[in-house]
Amino acid sequence: MQSFVEELVLCVAVNGGRVPALLWPEDPATLSALLELLPRPVRPEQGAELSVPGGPGAEELADELGRRLQLRVRPLFRFLPVGSPVVESALNGAESTVTVLEGACRCALSRVGEAPAPGPSGPLGMRLRSGGTLFTPQGHSYRLSEIHAPTTLLELHLEGPG
């Protein structure tokens, strides 16, 4: 888990306040370690989206990341069932990361107030799969769509000084 924190810190240091970035953790054990943080037995009812605050493990991850970045970091798990409607996220000037723990989804990035990139081949459109982390800097938002399998996300919201 420490390597994941270090990779996020580097990603924020390089891209923070400027551009979105996609991160694939180097340590192959990262995804399984992140899956262990999932609150159990929390799972959405069929057809229902569910967001829950991070539990103790996710809070520890957020605290360590916050300490290293000197920010307040708030963890949130989001469960998206098959066929979920479009999910949009704009964080009022905060930066964030979204890590796909299970499943996959289409992601379109845009500057706040602008339309998302056109189509899946647009320069800021991509398919996020298990293990991928998207960093979204200030002034940007993302739209998630095309949920073809139950998808679980870990969102880390990077807020003001901690």
Results as ranks from 00 to 15, higher is better:
residue 91 L to P: 01
residue 145 S to C: 05
residue 52 V to C: 07
residue 141 S to W: 07
residue 70 Q to E: 11
residue 74 R to C: 06
residue 113 G to W: 01
residue 108 A to Q: 13
residue 108 A to V: 12
residue 36 E to L: 10
residue 96 S to F: 01
residue 53 P to S: 11
residue 40 R to K: 14
residue 67 R to S: 14
residue 57 G to R: 05
residue 85 P to G: 12
residue 81 P to E: 09
residue 106 R to D: 07
residue 112 V to C: 05
residue 83 G to I: 13
residue 56 P to H: 13
residue 146 E to Y: 04
residue 33 A to H: 08
residue 55 G to H: 06
residue 136 T to W: 03
residue 75 P to G: 13
residue 144 L to W: 01
residue 157 H to K: 14
residue 55 G to D: 13
residue 66 G to V: 08
residue 157 H to I: 13
residue 60 E to G: 08
residue 42 V to F: 05
residue 130 S to I: 03
residue 81 P to A: 14
residue 96 S to I: 01
residue 103 G to W: 03
residue 53 P to T: 14
residue 62 A to T: 15
residue 142 Y to M: 10
residue 56 P to S: 15
residue 126 M to Q: 13
residue 100 V to C: 02
residue 52 V to Q: 08
residue 156 L to I: 14
residue 99 T to I: 03
residue 62 A to H: 13
residue 92 N to H: 00
residue 99 T to Y: 02
residue 121 S to D: 14
residue 83 G to W: 06
residue 87 V to M: 10
residue 80 L to M: 05
residue 98 V to H: 00
residue 70 Q to W: 07
residue 99 T to F: 02
residue 131 G to R: 01
residue 67 R to F: 04
residue 102 E to I: 10
residue 77 F to R: 11
residue 137 P to M: 10
residue 116 P to D: 15
residue 133 T to S: 11
residue 57 G to T: 09
residue 118 P to H: 11
residue 127 R to L: 04
residue 71 L to I: 05
residue 90 A to E: 10
residue 76 L to Q: 12
residue 105 C to P: 00
residue 98 V to I: 02
residue 153 L to W: 02
residue 104 A to N: 09
residue 93 G to P: 01
residue 108 A to H: 12
residue 158 L to Y: 01
residue 61 L to K: 09
residue 132 G to P: 00
residue 39 P to W: 05
residue 77 F to Q: 14
residue 130 S to L: 00
residue 81 P to W: 02
residue 61 L to M: 07
residue 94 A to P: 00
residue 48 A to P: 00
residue 39 P to R: 13
residue 44 P to V: 13
residue 116 P to G: 11
residue 136 T to L: 08
residue 82 V to P: 01
residue 98 V to P: 00
residue 106 R to C: 03
residue 154 L to F: 08
residue 51 S to L: 09
residue 41 P to L: 09
residue 52 V to Y: 03
